[in-house]
């Protein structure tokens, strides 16, 4: 109430500018995705044709089918899914307890711990790649889904820990204490109260991890030879592939990220009608 309202004209102008900026950014991101999607669902001759259509003229699964049936694609999709699920499980199993601890307990050095977590991202995988490969070969982890998943977990953990910690900060400590006064053990209070309340946020975090692993190229490409994940295979193949393959592949690899955005929008921000953060 203390701030004087801005004059209507300039406020309307600044609001219009915000919307304009939002539209430009949205178009910049959504435009290419849309165009890729249109062509991925167009028949082959349309994809080869020029100029390419802006609105779909004929919808067909031919292009997608061609991509999916190409040699090795299904295998690499399967590898990608295995790696991503392993990564998701490992990073939640390690990251969520760490995040919970950061959210609930004051301990000596917790600030330094936070920075240390982030600093793991300060070592580029490129520099680590040779020692990693030699280590993996000695451990027999090279060219395995588990090996890739372990590295992806290491890459995902900082975000998982910090995100889950902020989710648990949003679940009031009083709720767990109330459950304990009514007869729950500490673990029981976590399971019956904190976990259900944190679940939507944890799910969003898990999907984020899934997408991170699904899209990760470099580590997957250097650690695998036979059992490539989808991005690792595509990075090799895309440049030498026919145009329909590229559009279909591009859309296919984008899809989980788009689904994540839709899901996270709904669950990250609202929770039983209460704003969590």
């Amino acid at each position: 109430m203390t701030r004087r309202p801005a004059p209507p004209a300039s406020r309307r102008l600044s609001r219009a500018l915000v919307y304009l900026a939002a539209i430009v950014i949205a178009l910049y991101i959504a435009g290419p995705i849309y165009l890729v999607a249109v062509l991925a669902f167009s028949p082959r001759d349309v994809v080869y044709g020029y100029p390419k259509p802006i609105v779909p003229t004929q919808i067909s699964l031919e292009t997608m089918a061609f991509f999916i049936n190409s040699y090795g694609i299904l295998d690499s999709v399967k590898n990608s899914v295995i790696v991503a699920v392993l990564t998701l499980g490992l990073s939640l199993a390690i990251g969520a307890p760490a995040g919970y601890a950061l959210a609930r307990y004051v301990f000596r050095g917790s600030d330094i711990y936070r920075i240390l977590i982030l600093s793991t991202r300060a070592f580029p995988v490129v520099i680590l790649s040779i020692p990693l490969i030699t280590a993996y070969i000695t451990w027999g982890l090279d060219d395995t889904a588990l090996g890739v998943a372990l590295l992806h977990t290491a890459m995902a953990l900082p975000t998982t820990i910090l995100v889950t910690s902020s989710i648990f900060v949003g679940v009031s400590k009083d709720l767990e204490e109330a459950a304990m006064t009514m007869g729950c053990t500490r673990l029981g209070a976590f399971r019956r109260v904190a976990l259900p309340l944190a679940l939507p946020g944890l799910a969003a975090s898990a999907i984020f991890t899934f997408v991170l692993s699904w899209n990760e190229v470099f580590a997957a490409a250097i650690l695998t030879i036979q059992n490539q994940t989808l991005p690792a295979r595509l990075i090799v193949q895309l440049n030498q592939s026919p145009i329909p393959f590229r559009f279909a592949g591009g859309l296919f690899i984008l899809a989980p990220a788009i689904v994540f955005m839709l899901f996270a929008r709904r669950y990250l921000f609202s929770l039983w009608g209460v704003k969590l953060r």
Binding site: D174, L175, E177, A178, P196
Partner: peptide, 9 residues
């Protein structure tokens, strides 16, 4: 509790 701590779920 002061915050009531009623379980929202």
């Amino acid at each position: 509790f002061q915050s009531y701590a009623v379980f929202p779920h």
